[in-house]
Amino acid sequence: MKNMNDLGKQISGFEKQMPRGWVWDDSRAFLAVARHGTLSGAASELNLGIATLSRRIERLEKALKLPLFVRQQSGYQLTGEGADLVEKAEALEAAAVAFSSGASAQAQMVGKVRLATAENLATGLILPALPEFCKKHPDLTIELVTDITTINLHRRDADLAVRMVKPERGNVTLRRLGVLGYGLYSSSDYAAQRETDPNLGCYDTDAFITWSERQSHLPAAQWVERILQGREPVLTTTSLSAQVAATKAGLGLAVLPHFVAQNAGLICVASDIGVDQPIYLVIQSDLAQSRRTRAVADFLVDLVSRNRTRLSG
């Protein structure tokens, strides 16, 4: 098959000879008659009536202002002008077939879906469940993006996202799936050694692990900042996994999602600190009806629903 550049050149050449308003059905009729040499054979191929087919040929000739066939008793014979257009019409046919094949692939569960989400949801929730989804849809490729601070669905950086911040603008559709619960956690060794106060919620002598300045807008980081009241944290990090590791090492307290901290075997010092976040499924609106995007979305909705209690803590 000729490459797409060649097809494009041939299609462009054919379009230049076509008047405005021409339709592909007339070109198909032209090709079928050119190949069969008779109206009856072409009509049978296209599943059309002979009268309808004849009208399409006449309409095309009138639009082009060219005689495409010589009508003979034995059938239809191409004129010189008609013969010159056959190759260009075949290029259109090839492009139409390629377009149809692409649309068919879109309608099937084939291709790539780009999903953006937070690192903790990716590693602790989505990835463990993904093998079963991939078995069900072996021709789908999931591209998982966890650096969601730079992801913009309106810009088409991703097809859909699971995030804890509600989008305020953009051509997206969203659905609230549940709640991600947070608590204050420590290692068992730190919990055994820490000085407790009769007044619940007093952390004057505690060391804290928190987010770096770049993530200072996060609710967990803001909670720690309020508690510290100007004191310095013992450690700041740019990733949740580093905070979990530092907490396990006994460096101090950290505000962590319940399901992440519990998976790591950490001790809950305070279970409800008021920084729980809603979980939203956000889909690029133009892709909301795509079967492959919808399949991933349905998988995520079911996954969060099945883990609702675990996520909320």
Rank of each mutant, 00 (worst) to 15 (best):
A207L: 13
F69I: 08
S74D: 13
T123S: 13
T293Y: 00
K62S: 10
A129G: 11
L144G: 01
L200A: 13
A94S: 08
L140D: 03
I279Q: 07
L68W: 07
Q284F: 05
D157T: 05
Q77E: 10
G183L: 04
N263F: 06
L48Q: 09
A264V: 01
K248W: 00
D286T: 07
A207F: 09
V296M: 11
L180N: 12
V234R: 08
T38P: 08
S27V: 15
Q73P: 09
T117V: 03
V145K: 02
A63D: 05
M18S: 05
I142Y: 10
E90T: 03
A43Y: 02
Y280T: 02
E232I: 01
A297S: 13
L256N: 05
F30G: 00
E90L: 05
S12T: 10
L39V: 02
D157P: 01
G124I: 06
A246L: 11
V234C: 12
L303M: 10
V244Y: 04
H217L: 13
S74L: 07
V145N: 08
Y185I: 10
L115I: 06
Q289T: 14
D159Q: 08
A242C: 03
R194K: 12
L115Q: 04
I50P: 10
E213D: 14
A270C: 00
Y280P: 02
G274N: 05
L228C: 10
A158F: 06
S187W: 10
T146N: 09
S100A: 07
V97Q: 12
P19L: 02
R308W: 05
E232W: 06
L121C: 00
S290N: 06
G170N: 08
S27A: 15
V301Q: 09
A96H: 12
T238Y: 10
A297Y: 04
K2R: 13
A249Q: 12
A51V: 15
A89H: 12
S27H: 01
L174F: 15
T117M: 12
D298W: 05
R56Q: 08
M164F: 14
Q106C: 05
V234D: 01
A191I: 05
R176S: 08
Q193I: 04
K248P: 01
V224Y: 00
N307T: 09
D298V: 07
D157K: 06
L180I: 08
D276N: 15
R291D: 13
L130P: 11
W223T: 07
P278Y: 07
Y203M: 03
D6P: 01
L180H: 06
L85V: 09
Q215C: 10
R306W: 04
I57G: 03
I267H: 12
T237F: 05
R306G: 00
S101A: 15
E232F: 03
T309C: 07
L7A: 03
G178Y: 08
E58T: 06
D6A: 12
A245Y: 00
V172Q: 07
I151P: 08
C202S: 11
T309Y: 09
N263Y: 09
A207Y: 11
R292V: 06
W24M: 13
T173M: 14
L144R: 00
T123H: 13
K2W: 10
T247N: 01
L31Q: 03
T52Q: 03
